[in-house]
Design a protein around this nucleic acid. Structure first.
Lengths: 117, 117
DNA sequence: ATGCTATATATGGCATTGCGATATATTATT
DNA sequence: AATAATATATCGCAATGCCATATATAGCAT
């Protein structure tokens, strides 16, 4: 029963940054859930992997809060997709979350002695 | 009912990095719980605040895993304190967690477009 | 035909766990 | 006498991440 610490850390950390990730990814263009999950995997080079059982409920929560707005898109020969776009309110939240993220990283680095990271 | 996004983010993120913070703080010298909680507050300039109802159970968990080792220190005119020191196993875990943290930050920055942060 | 993989969304339910609230104990300050 | 700071401890609720599973479509291999 080896305890793989860094993997645990990453799994735990992903939770808190999930909103920031999603909001960032729908910033430039509307995206559907599966697209978001794949983007997170590829852009992080496999370091982060979003479980769909976490992703979809989170998308619903963000939409309920009015940070993203979804609409169904039907296309022949394709399963229907729900594309989410960032709302005006969402833009403000994203800006705040980016500030929060930066401040948080600085705080952690200060405490753990990783200034130069 | 204003939704303070960055505060939510920080609270959520703190969870995952809690182990890294504690292990880092007992790296140079043994420290007791209250000391650790105060250090996190001061070194982060108030950005991070550890709830004691989270801190103490976490210390027990880390000790149970063998990453830190505690011992009671009694001193006249003082409430008894439990000083935790980093074990050999803990040192390895801390190194792995630091690598994990760095990789995680890089992954997030890549995904959210904050390379230059 | 059949099975497997990728795409795409959805959810029941369990297990984890963060934290508000509260408690106990000692010392110093007002 | 009351309050604040130091120091550790825990009950119990609420939040939520994810395993497992389900549904539906399309492409490709066997």
């Amino acid at each position: 029963m080896p305890y793989i610490a860094s993997r645990v850390l990453e799994r735990e950390l992903k939770k808190g940054s999930a909103e920031l990730l999603i909001l960032s990814l729908v910033e430039d263009r509307p995206r559907h859930g599966y697209d978001i999950s794949k983007l997170i995997e590829t852009r992080s080079k496999g370091a982060l992997k979003f479980n769909v059982a976490s992703l979809y409920p989170l998308l619903y929560r963000l939409e309920k809060r009015g940070w993203i707005q979804g609409r169904w898109v039907e296309k022949a020969g394709q399963r229907r997709r729900r594309y989410y776009k960032l709302t005006l309110e969402g833009k403000k939240v994203l800006a705040a979350q980016r500030r929060g993220w930066r401040g948080f990283v600085e705080a952690i680095n200060r405490i753990t002695g990783m200034e130069h990271a």
